[in-house]
């Protein structure tokens, strides 16, 4: 008997009139969602710009390009050494000749950083 009434009460609670301004209410919620999202995008964008500026300035300060050139020269040296060692390693010398290997590694690192950044932004 009591359980019957409780079930009836649950049914009564489940029945609710559709409010006249249901559409307007949903729009208000969507507006707030969009506003929050816009603010978040601005924040991420601003953080990206700040991070980029800091990263670029650090690259300048640390003379990265000069170091890359040095690494390129080293790669050439290693390449020529390898050529002397074995003729079967021609493919490796082709890749590393002229510092291509270093640049390929740098490109790979940039792609990896992009991937990580995408994941981080996704998580945020």
């Amino acid at each position: 008997m009591a359980e019957d009434f409780e079930r009836r009460l649950e049914r009564l609670f489940a029945e609710h009139p559709e409010l006249a301004d249901a559409g307007a209410f949903a729009e208000r919620v969507e507006r707030r969602l969009n506003a929050g999202w816009t603010a978040r995008r601005w924040l991420i964008g601003a953080a990206g710009v700040v991070g980029g500026v800091i990263g670029a300035s650090q690259l300048m300060v640390s003379n990265l390009f000069q170091r890359v050139e040095t690494a390129g020269d080293s790669a050439k040296l290693i390449s020529s050494s390898l050529n002397h060692l074995s003729a079967s390693t021609d493919w490796m010398s082709a890749v590393s000749a002229g510092g291509v290997g270093v640049w390929a590694a740098a490109a790979l690192a940039v792609v990896m950083m992009g991937f990580v950044l995408t994941r981080v932004i996704g998580e945020i």
Binding site: F13, H16, E30
Partner: peptide, 22 residues
């Protein structure tokens, strides 16, 4: 996807508001 969530709000907004009023 915020538009998908908007559809959920459209469907259930009245029920949630109704419970609070009750």
């Amino acid at each position: 996807e915020r538009r998908a969530f908007g559809e959920l709000v459209r469907r259930h907004g009245s029920a949630v508001r109704g419970v609070l009023r009750r």
